[in-house]
């Protein structure tokens, strides 16, 4: 159908305008700002690529890569556990167990709770002296397993990952479940008629047919892994203690751009440079994801 210019503008303008000024412009502006040194007021000072050199090779290197590798570690651990465990739990749900609808609702419940509140709730439970976890371990006689979950630098980040999995697993279960249910029952039926065992059905039919879903989930997880912030903030604060052992790019960026005591340097330009490096890193994956989403539609 054809449309007059007037109507076109009235329909398209509001969304296009808000999207452009709140999403596209800030991204471009961040890249631009990364070439300056600026505390937020007064004149910006052009410094060229100095911010990037500081981050990648200079005195900000240690802080940046410490956080960066935590994000990568987070991505690897979370994608392996959430996708595989999500698949297994989805298989369980798909095998027509009793209470299917109730289990499905309970499993998804943590996903509707605000991330930062999840962090606070678990902060109480994981408290070393009076938290439920250690009290319970002592109660059943395993007091040597009662650990300072958030206070030990070797444990803290894994603890945060565990809480993250508690919050998100239901989403992966339900996406994998939708993918499993989407397989034509005839395929599985035909497998049984040919005498295949359950294990063969899972390996030869269900896994190959749900693989594209798992791949897309991993792409999304990669993108999402770079926006980790709330749990670290709620459980360890912006200093990402103990001794920066839970620092991620999100908290590093927050300290750099918006202050917080103990930041090595406070500078919006430096913060913008951190974010620009994150864009560069996410960009190829985002590109594949958007293409995949588009292709699936056709």
């Amino acid at each position: 159908m054809k449309i007059k210019c007037f109507y076109f503008c009235v329909f398209v303008f509001p969304a296009l305008f808000l999207y452009t000024i709140f999403v596209i412009y800030p991204f471009i502006s961040s890249i631009h700002l990364s070439l300056f040194s600026w505390v937020g007021v007064g004149a910006k000072k052009y410094v060229g690529l100095k911010n990037f050199i500081d981050i990648l090779f200079g005195n900000f290197k240690g802080e940046f890569f410490n956080a960066f590798w935590h994000n990568i570690y987070f991505f690897i651990v979370v994608s392996i556990i959430e996708v595989s465990l999500g698949f297994l739990i989805a298989l369980g749900l798909a095998s027509q167990i009793k209470g299917y609808h109730i289990f499905r609702s309970i499993i998804y419940l943590p996903n509707v709770i605000s991330m930062v509140l999840v962090g606070f709730i678990w902060g109480l439970i994981l408290n070393p002296q009076i938290g439920l976890v250690n009290q319970f371990l002592k109660f059943i006689g395993l007091s040597n397993l009662a650990k300072p979950w958030l206070g030990d630098p070797n444990l803290a980040f894994n603890t945060i990952i565990a809480v993250n999995i508690w919050r998100h697993l239901g989403f992966y279960v339900l996406v994998m479940l939708a993918s499993i249910i989407g397989i034509l029952p005839d395929y599985i039926e035909a497998g049984y008629i040919d005498g295949a065992s359950n294990w063969q059905i899972i390996r030869k039919i269900i896994i190959p047919m749900t693989l594209p879903t798992a791949q897309t989930l991993i792409l999304l997880l990669f993108i999402w892994s770079f926006s980790v912030f709330e749990l670290v903030y709620a459980l360890e604060g912006v200093q990402a203690g103990p001794f920066r052992s839970t620092d991620v790019l999100g908290t590093l960026f927050y300290r750099t751009a918006f202050g917080g005591l103990g930041s090595a340097r406070m500078d919006l330009g430096l913060g913008a440079a951190i974010v620009t490096l994150m864009f560069i890193f996410i960009l190829p994956v985002s590109f594949i994801y958007v293409r995949l989403v588009e292709r699936r539609r056709q």
Binding site: A15, L16, Y19, I21, F22, V23, I24, Y25, P26, F27, S29, S30, L33, G40, I223, W224, F226, S227, F229, A257, F258, L268, G271, A272, V275, M278, F279, I282, V285, S286, F287, Y289, V290, V293, E294
Partner: peptide
């Protein structure tokens, strides 16, 4: 269309500095 769905692929929070200033 592609211009708009490109926004699906980046967490909007990463661009917070210019949003804050604006």
């Amino acid at each position: 269309y592609l211009y708009v769905i490109a926004g699906l692929a980046f967490p909007a929070r990463l661009a917070i500095i210019p949003i804050f200033i604006m």
